Amino acid sequence: MSQAIISPEVLKWARLRSKLNIDMVAQKVNVKVEKLNEWETGEAKPTFIQAQKLAKTLHIPFGYLFLNEPPKEKADLPDLRNLSDCHFEDFSTDLQDVISDVKFKQDWYREFRQERGDDELKFIGKYSDKDSSKVIADEITEVLNLTIDDRKAVKNWEEFYQLLVKKAEEIGLWVMKSSMVGSNTHRVLDVSEFRGFVIADSIAPVIFINGADAKAAQIFTLIHEVVHLWFNSSGVSNIDFRNDKNSIIDIREKKCNEIAAEVLVPEAQLMKLWNKVLSVSENADNLCKYFKVSSIVIARRALDLDLILAEEFFDYYAYLVEVWKEAKQKMKNNDGGPSYYVSIPIRNGYRFSGDVLQNVYSHKLLMRDGARLLGLKPATLAKFAKEVGVR
């Protein structure tokens, strides 16, 4: 078989970029580690078939392997992450692919909404960092029409999250949530890398939530990204509740955290409900059920409002880390989750999914193009349409 004259330097770059160790890549390409080492050092060359397998495994265009040097990749979105133990210096291949997919969909949706005659959203970019966090939080709460009665009406975090998504989409926002790249169950998104991102746009603003995160944590991330839109700012976030008041973090991120906390846990109500006789853990456990947010959000809010000491907060945080580890293991052992067809609009956004289907079945969009937008095969799109009653 003829050899593929690939660049050893590009091959090694692609493997390191993919976060896969050499053993894993060798296994996927079905060669010995020693052989892969020879390819990376230039002592040997793969066949064209093996080179194609390498490109697929490393999630790069086949042509990249023939470049003289690794391409200079530019981050698609501002990196606003501040998680202190984040081990990702650059965006992983998985995150980059998710961002690219969302941008591809956003380009179509923006054009569709413009042609439909949708108005620009007036609240996008309405405020700056100099404006009052309380004023912005009150406006977001009003625009979303979010009340305490809403919290009382839902049973759990999952229902509250779904309610927030519904309210966000009703005002013109677009919310996507997934725990993997496309529908590839082998490419699970890493919560330690990011919790969500937002791409601001006056016509088709989109929020992406990492579905691999805990349900309660997704609520704060959602509102955090909503706040970004009031500043017309885009970026990838990974909220870290451990930052103290004097931490050197992105000013905008700090502002968005502050506003999101006020939207979800209003200061006046928390001050009224906080019981000084009870411990941090007891207060957090009680109040997280009332506000429908995670207990760490309650504890962090209490710290920022001087209801507890920093030492108390960090002790409680350390305790929760162990609780989260146990919960994560239980999630791994639980195969439950929404059915496949139910998950499609969750992954792509409810209104976006509906608009794509309507365009396909009104013959304004080819079936194959609609399927591509939803990350489906044409036959699966037809079954999905039937499932939701579009055809």
Rank of each mutant, 00 (worst) to 15 (best):
Q3V: 15
K12T: 09
N21V: 03
I22W: 03
K28E: 09
K28S: 11
V33E: 15
Q50W: 01
L58H: 05
L58A: 13
K74V: 06
A75K: 10
A75M: 09
D76C: 05
P78R: 08
L80E: 03
D94H: 12
Q96P: 01
S100N: 08
K103Q: 13
D107L: 10
Y109W: 14
F112E: 09
D118G: 01
G125E: 02
Y127K: 11
S128G: 13
L146Y: 11
I148N: 10
K166M: 04
V175N: 01
V175K: 01
S179W: 04
V181F: 08
N184E: 08
V191E: 07
A204M: 06
A214Q: 09
A216N: 13
I219G: 01
T221F: 00
V226R: 07
V236G: 01
N238E: 07
N246H: 15
S247G: 00
I249F: 03
R252P: 00
R252K: 12
K254S: 03
E262K: 07
V265N: 02
N283I: 04
N283M: 12
D285T: 14
Y290A: 10
S295K: 12
D304G: 07
D306T: 07
L307T: 01
L309E: 13
L309R: 13
W324M: 13
K325W: 10
E326A: 07
K332A: 12
P338A: 09
Y340H: 10
I344Q: 00
R351F: 15
R351P: 00
D355N: 08
M367L: 15
T380M: 11
L381I: 08
L381C: 05
A385T: 04
R391N: 13
